[in-house]
């Protein structure tokens, strides 16, 4: 019988140990999950929640302080996410905070980050609505990448053409040789100058008229003694003056430009014909030409590889349908 009693004590200890462990476990989990902590609900509006589901964590400053209670699709551009935050967050989160979607680690669960705004704002209250930041989804990234690829294709084509043209250096030489260019520029400058001069004369005339009007001379003057009209007229004159000033400045700038271009063209011609210089080197140095050729080849190769990649992508089962659709569209067009 005594044996029986010790057995029972052992059993009691055994069961008790299990229960204590279980309670301890739940206690630790409760700290973690705070099912018992009172919470309040706020909402956040998103256009796209990229896989967020109820139960995902909500973080403030990287600390889990709540969970996503509900995700509701309202219409094609609005998803309302209900967030339950721990009560102590009422003292921390502010009304103008934004909600951003994030991921726990690189491939972890989706979560909502509540980000503070720089401006001051009152503390958050239950039922408040936070604005959701747009999330970069993989789909978007792929679409952008596709666009980028196309741009790269266009750029490389353009570059090739340009380099082709440079290669046929006669054109460049013609351009550089052409004296009519600078002559034309000079003529344009002269025209501008005369225009400015005319504008100046007009201004003076107008000023005289205005002075007359002010003094009340002439029938027009009598008619226009009205101050409001005078004010408007004055305003117009001032604007005209400003235009004139600007035109003047433009003309000066143009003058400088023409001089510079003139100088450059002359220098270039000089260099080309007589001495060492950058342009000469560029045009005549066979090494540079070879390098240029090489770079061009690389570029071409790159383009070829790229179109190869694109071709492979076309056959990839994921994209096949998309490309087939594109082809059909092209045929239709």
């Amino acid at each position: 019988m005594a044996n029986r009693t010790t057995d029972n004590v052992k059993l009691g200890v055994f069961v008790l140990a299990g229960l204590v462990l279980l309670v301890l476990f739940f206690y630790m989990l409760s700290k973690n999950e705070s099912i018992f902590a009172s919470r309040f609900e706020i909402k956040a509006h998103f256009a796209n929640v990229s896989g967020l589901v109820s139960g995902n964590n909500v973080r403030v400053a990287g600390i889990v302080v709540g969970i996503v209670e509900d995700v509701e699709l309202v219409n094609d551009t609005l998803v309302i996410v209900t967030i339950a935050l721990n009560d102590d967050m009422r003292q921390i989160v502010r009304k103008n905070a934004t909600a951003a979607l994030g991921t726990d680690g690189l491939i972890g669960n989706r979560l909502v980050n509540i980000l503070p705004a720089a401006e001051p704002a009152p503390l958050i209250e239950p039922g408040d609505i936070l604005l959701g930041q747009k999330d970069i989804s993989t789909e978007d990234m792929l679409r952008t990448l596709d666009q980028t690829n196309r741009n790269v294709l266009i750029i490389s084509n353009g570059l090739r053409e340009t380099i082709d043209r440079i290669n046929k250096s006669t054109q460049l030489t013609t351009l550089l040789d052409d004296e009519s260019l600078s002559l034309n520029l000079k003529a344009a400058l002269l025209n501008l100058r005369s225009a400015t001069g005319q504008a100046s004369a007009t201004m003076q005339d107008l000023n005289a008229v205005v002075a007359d009007v002010r003094n009340g001379e002439g029938s027009v003057g009598a008619l226009l003694r009205d101050t409001s009209f005078a004010w408007e007229l004055n305003q117009t004159v001032r604007k005209l003056q400003a235009v004139e000033n600007q035109a003047d400045r433009l003309a000066q700038n143009m003058d400088a430009l023409v001089k510079e271009v003139d100088g450059a063209v002359k220098g270039l011609q000089n260099d080309l014909n007589y001495g060492p210089g950058a342009a000469n080197l560029l045009m005549k140095d066979s090494l540079t030409a070879a390098r240029l050729q090489n770079a061009l080849g690389n570029l071409e190769q790159g383009t070829a590889r790229f179109s190869e990649n694109m071709e492979a992508m076309k056959h990839n089962f994921l994209f096949r349908r998309y490309f087939r659709k594109m082809e059909k569209k092209k045929e239709k067009d």
Binding site: R4, D7, N8, K10, L11, F14, V15
Partner: peptide
């Protein structure tokens, strides 16, 4: 039952 709990559990 207690005896079996002891044998089976403990």
């Amino acid at each position: 039952l207690i005896r079996q709990c002891f044998i089976i559990g403990y």
